[in-house]
Every structure is written in C-alpha cells, then in structure tokens.
Write a protein that binds this DNA or RNA. Structure first.
Lengths: 341, 341
DNA sequence: GATCGGCGTGGGAACCTTCCCACATATAGG
DNA sequence: CCTATATGTGGGAAGGTTCCCACGCCGATC
C-alpha cells in the first residue's frame, strides 16, 4: 500500500542510498540520477515514512501540548484555545506537528503517553504542581510552561505580568473615581488570579483605599456561571457598588449578565472591568474594558523557546514575562465621579 | 537516556521476547518472570518506544485532525473548537493521540504532512473541495469529514441537518408573527449556510411569505464583524424590520451589537435568531435564541466512526445527520405580533 | 515408555530509514 | 605517470519493537 525507498530505488535503477540522498538533499547525486529518482517518487506518489526516519534519527519533529484544565471548554476556550492557535501556527512554520492532549488531573498520565510517542518536546499549559514539574525535569525532555505556576527559576515559563495587570485595572478604576467597588476573584491557587488580585489591591491601597475583604468574592472556578451566580450573592451584601473588577473576562461577562437581569445597566449603574481580553470582550454588549494578556505572543514564543532547547540552546532568562495592556471599552465609559467616597 | 526492551531483559534475566509478552500482556509468561520484568520496568522507568512499535505493527494509534479555515480563531473557535474538544475527549478514551493542524488553503499540504507521519486516520473539518476528497479516497487512508461539503454518498461525513435547522428558526419566528424580516447569510459556498438559508426561506414561503431578496444580506465571511457591519448597510434599506435571522451565532452577535449601537434594543425593537448555539449564545446580553447544532456529538461520533474504519468495519450509512434543536432565549422574548404584515 | 498437548522461553527476521564506510571514476597537480 | 582530491554510488549496520517459529520441560494418556 505504501511504497518504500527500496521501491523507488528499484524503479529508478539506483540504490536506496542514492534515493535517500535525493530526499534529504545531501551528499553527491548526479543530475541524471536525481532526475530519475524524482520522477519515480512523483509517479508512485511516494511519501517518506516519518516513523522509520524517527527510528534512526532519534527525533520525531513532533511536539506535545498538554492543557491541564478541569472544565470544558478546553481547546475552544477563549484564553487557552487562543494560545493553542498560536502554538499551532508557529509550530507549522517551524515544521513541527503538534499532539494536543487535555488532562483534567494534574498527573503525569498524559505526559507519559506523549513521552512514549517520543515527542521532541512538551508545552504545558496552565497550572501544574511542583511534583509534576520535578517529574518533567527528571525526564530530560525539553519542556516549557505557559501561564503556569512556578517559582523555579530554572524552568522555562512564559507568563503574563498579572500583578502589573491588576495594577492597570486599579489605576483605570481609580482614575474614574470608582472607590465603592467589589472584586470577583478566580481560584487563588492559580498564579494568575492570585497576582491579578494582589496587584489590584496594592494599587488601591497605595491610593488610600483598602479593598474591603467583605467585598471580595472568591470564586471556585473562573467560569461565566461563577460570575453570574456570584453577583447575586454579593449584591445582597452591598447595594451601592459603583464598579466591579473580575480577575478574568469570563467572570466579568457573567457579572454583566447578572447585572442586567437585576434590571441595572453597565456602566450606568455599575462599571465592570475584566482581564484577558478574550475575543468576546470586544463583542459583548456593552463591550468590556479589560486588561489584554499576550495569548498569541505567549503561544508563539513558547514554540520558539522550545525549538531552541530542542536544538541544544537555552537562554539565560528562563522566565519570560509579557507586559499587559489596558483596553478601555464601554463597560467603564462613565463620567468621572467626583467627591464621592 | 531512554532504556530499551533489551535493557529490561538483561536486568530481569529473561529474553526480550518475554519482556515484550509482559508489556503486551499476551502469550505465556510465568508469574515469576512477569514479576521480575515488572520490577525492572518500574525501577528504570522504562517507557516502550511507540515509534519502534509503530514501525513493526504498521499503525501508530495517532489520528490527524485538520481544520480547514481561513480566519482566526481556529482551535479557539466556538464552533470548530467545540468539535475539536469532543474529538480530543473521545480519542483519549480510545487510546489515540491527536495531531491537530489548521490549514488556510484547501490543498493536500497538511494532509501529506500527516500522511508521512503515518497517522491511522484523518478527521477533516469544514469545507473542502471534490478534488481533495478524491485525493483522500485514492490515498487509501481512513478519513471522515465533519461539517463539510460532500454529495459523495460513499464518503463518511457527519453533518448537522442544517436545512431542518433553518426551518426551525423560521417556524419559531413565524409563530411569533414576525414577517417583516431580514436574513444575514454566511458564505453560500459553505453547505451549512446555504442549507440554513434554504430551509428558512422554504418555510416562510410555505406559509405565504416570500423572503424578499433585497432583505437578504450575503456576508463574505461568517464572522462577528460581518454581522456588525452588515446591519448598518441593511438598516439603511429598511427601517421597519421586526426580526433578523442570521445563519450563525457569530453573525447574530455582531448584529445585536450593531442594533444596540443604533440605540435600539433586542428583542423590543428587533428580535434576533442565530444558529449553532455556541457557548456565548447563552451568555450574551440578551441571551440569543438559536438553533443548536450537535458539535459535541459530531466530534465524538467522528472518532468512533473513524475507529471502526481503522479496524476494518464500515457502516452502510456513510452520512450521519444530526437533528438540530431550537433554543428559545431572550432575543426573541416578545409579545406575539398580531394582524401585522 | 513413547507420544502428545499445554506451558514457558529465546532467537531471529522484519519494519524503513539514515549514516558510515568502501569503492569507482575522473580530473588536476607534481 | 603516480598520487591526491572531488564526485558519485552502493552495501550494510543500526535503531527498538513485534511476531513467528523452534525448542525444552512437564504431566497425562494410551
């Protein structure tokens, strides 16, 4: 069914070595021989067997991407999926194929699977624990972490400067005079949510406003439903909120929906600021003011750095941090509040 | 760096054949020998080399997924990404690894790449042309098409019953007495958009209302921006619309946004119906009435059918059609219009 | 006590490629 | 004319596994 290099050799009347040289474009091959081989390849629609090639060359040109996440969606997630899209794009440019796996549990199971497939490297997305990080380190496989947790400065990881992002959100809200606020924070064991909240509180604090712990709602997950439900619960505690900061856009979108269902409007009654700048932030009604995180750049850079490692080069700085950017949209389009506190 | 079956054999004092039998759990192995081998495997953290295995067994347990699509997002697309998520899930259940590729052009380029990697089968998502379908047929590789175009009844393809979906949308709108309507249709060369429009018009027609060709806007793409821009253009032509049907949710969401920016409200001034039931349909403000398409089921079924083919079984019915379902939400929550035309 | 089947084990070929080495021819330099 | 170098070609080993076949042992059957 599939032809081999030997078939091509026989048809074109040369040895398999010569065919190999033609395919890999290396060594000496006479124009006549090359011509004959090329015609035979074309005629039989011969495709070199990458499995056999990997067998001898000891590398597959395959990269594994594992997204650690408990809830759907995963690939179609507006944040993680966006990173994946960027990975796919850059990998294709560099000639890699990508295995995508999703894993609900933070264990080595998926990775072992891909390790058996002999991938050249691994890209790990989202939070994983130190035990797993140590496992990857000991396995000798080149790997990079995207948007994950690690204080281990020896591990390549690409993250958003979430603390700075939190500050940006706070600065914006402060500039609008919004001081009666609430925060809807995603799971604090996740680096991003933790730092976003931290930066936000710090900035408010530095400006003389402590964020009341009673006005911080800690969500169990970072999903839409969480923001939606959470708003009801916090609303009962405090009726005179001016604004809400959510540590990601999905939560913010859930909050907006809940606000409208209570018969209020954004930003007229309550302003909302999100984080991530997922595609829907711009599309939502009203469009959502948010902090842009470098999803595409993280994905591209992850592949680039992994590729370097695979080729034996490593950079000095293992940690790459991307600067976030504030995107002001309609959900905070208000007159500046004055003299209120 | 990586141990081989021979290393395990040497350590445990048996032959490589015995180790192979232990790993594959086949043939006769004495409990004593099995025990020794297992300990050695555990001790060395031996991982069988799937590349070598694929070499001899002639199958890789890898499946390629190619998403043919010109515009970003792809993996993170609320429709295609959702299918991909389902594929990933089911594949993992069945022990397959998934190569994901995206291709902007409808050529055999990506497929050739995966064919070289010797995938066991291919899942092709979205529209492709007959030439390419013929190419896959001639390549002998098991493949299934998801949400693609094909009149070739010999090709396995999974589609949504889009025509019926168009009817459902029309029936709902008619039941609300909405007759002054406009349609925003995605690219007509795409089977889905074509059939959705067809079913919709047919139903209106059967009820005595022809959809005026002047009130159909044919969009160049099926994206948010398209719906957004399109509304402005159609709005100038007709100021007294009661409702809009868009052939997918992204376009519908764009329309809603444009409606609000013109100072009107949904559904009070104009009702909107979409198609697909992407996650954001439920989250949007107002929530979007839409026709649910079986994204997850299509993804699951695609893997299942491909797996059957890989194992040499094929079903009689190559074409599997999924019945759509109307999801009534707030974007059509109106008093029934009476006596208007 | 020879034969037979079940059990347990090991050796070797095969899968398809790359890479190294050996060999052949032609050309140039001394 | 002989050697050195460039060009061109082919053979064989290696890479790690599976699978087939052969072989040895044991207990049961005739």
């Amino acid at each position: 069914m599939n032809y081999t290099i030997i078939d091509i050799a026989n048809i074109s009347g040369v040895s398999k070595s010569t065919v190999s040289r033609v395919i890999s474009n290396s060594g000496y091959v006479s124009p006549a021989a090359r011509e004959k081989v090329l015609t035979a390849i074309e005629k039989l629609q011969y495709k070199p067997n990458a499995v056999a090639r990997a067998m001898v060359s000891r590398h597959t040109k395959n990269i594994g991407v594992i997204i650690y996440r408990q809830h759907h969606p995963i690939a179609s997630h507006p944040f993680y999926g966006k990173i994946l899209d960027a990975i796919l794009e850059k990998a294709s440019e560099l000639g890699y194929s990508i295995f995508v796996m999703t894993d609900k549990e933070i264990t080595s199971k998926s990775a072992d699977f891909l390790l058996e497939k002999r991938v050249d490297g691994l890209i790990l997305i989202s939070r994983l624990n130190q035990e797993l990080i140590d496992y990857f380190k000991s396995s000798q496989i080149p790997f990079v972490m995207v948007n994950g947790t690690s204080d281990d400065s020896n591990v390549i990881h690409l993250v958003n400067d979430d603390e700075r992002g939190g500050e940006l959100a706070a600065e914006h809200m402060l500039s609008l005079g919004l001081t009666r606020i609430a925060v809807f924070a995603g799971p604090q064991e996740h680096r991003s949510h933790f730092l976003r909240l931290k930066g936000f509180r710090k900035t408010y604090s530095q400006n003389g406003y402590e964020v009341d712990e009673n006005h911080i709602y800690y969500a169990d997950s970072s999903q839409f439903e969480e923001g939606y439900k959470a708003f009801q619960s916090i609303w009962e505690r405090s009726h005179n909120l001016q604004a809400i900061f959510a540590t990601n856009d999905m939560i913010a979108l859930g909050v907006i929906k809940a606000i409208y269902e209570k018969g209020m409007q954004v930003p007229k009654d309550i302003a909302v600021v999100g984080f991530d700048d997922i595609d829907y932030a711009a599309m939502s009604n009203p469009s959502l003011t948010t902090v842009h995180s470098a999803k595409t750049r993280m994905g591209h850079e992850a592949v680039l750095m992994l590729d370097e490692w695979i080729h034996g080069n490593t950079r000095q700085t293992k940690m790459q941090m991307f600067t976030p950017e504030l995107k002001i949209r309609n959900s905070t389009k208000i007159e500046i509040m004055e003299g209120l506190s």
